[in-house]
Amino acid sequence: MISFIAGRFAQSIVVMLTVGLIAFAMFRFVGDPINNMVGQDTTAEQREQLRERLGLNDPFYVQYARFALNAVQGEFGQSYFHRRPVSELLVERMPATLELSLIGAVLALVVGVPAGVYTALNRNGILSNLIMSGSLLGVSIPTFLIGIILILVFGVVWRVLPTFGRGDVVDLGWWTTGFLTASGLKSLILPSVTLALFQLTLIMRLVRAEMLEVLRTDFIKFAKARGILTRSIHFSHALKNSLVPVITITGLQLGSIIAFAIITETVFQWPGMGLLFIQAVLEVDIPVMAAYLVVIGFVFVFINFIVDILYFVVDPRLRADRAGSGH
């Protein structure tokens, strides 16, 4: 157990160092950082001074080490476009993205798991077939189009829900929240539904497939033979056993929700990290892009790490497997 965690941890560190290296290489080699920081009337001498002061003349590995150390402390330099420290921008935008992602994830789970169970138990029901066809449609409509359609229906035709921004937010000092005001909550509805819909279809299809798989196994037949109530078999035997992979994949999906938030935030002009990132890509604001990469990379590696350990704890079969194949 300890050695497994240590191995995973070491791997996570290596991944983070690689992500950091890519981010640093972007920062250092895409365009000249000095040109991006100063105006045109800066003399060559001043440029050289700045270059020396920022340590851009140091060897590559020294620069990288400095970049990594700064990144660990949350320091990513100045944004070329906003002319402010990147860390400030990120801290300012983070609550918006996290609140949106949280609601999106909860929605996807709360609707996706029951829908998956239902379609697995009533395989040939009319409603099940309807849900399954609906899910294929859900996979085929790009996130941004779902957003546009929702905006058209609820914002333009019916005019019942706000279609951009976060509404009124309450500043808690270190965190701004839209949970506490009516307009904040209303503003959350469309973006979070947009964000949840794609994940919802994935979770639902996964739960359905896993349930069907488990329902075919011998121990379910045996439980039936013992005369246990059907309801009890479905929920305490089948569902419990099909949730293991669901937990893992949902964990991994949490990460991709944050990535898909880029799209949702752009459609709804939601002032989160995703919108910041897309603006950075458009304006070639490399420090912001690099910082976003590192932050998202960290979130992903962290989630992967937790999920790996959870998987290991939940499923005893894996322990023997892993020991054997030396993963």
């Binding site: 991944v15 690689t18 972007m26 895409v30 365009g31 991994l252 990460g255 991709s256 990535a259 898909f260 880029i262 799209i263 990132f277 897309i278 950075a280 890509v281 458009l282 070639v284 490399i286 892009m289 990469l293 998202i296 990379g297 992903f300 590696v301 992967n304």
Partner: peptide, 22 residues
Amino acid sequence: DVQLSFPAILIAFLIDGVARGV
């Protein structure tokens, strides 16, 4: 494995962003 732990669309964004810079 490492690439798979990042969503494809994010990687596409980054490559496009870098290309814009280069």
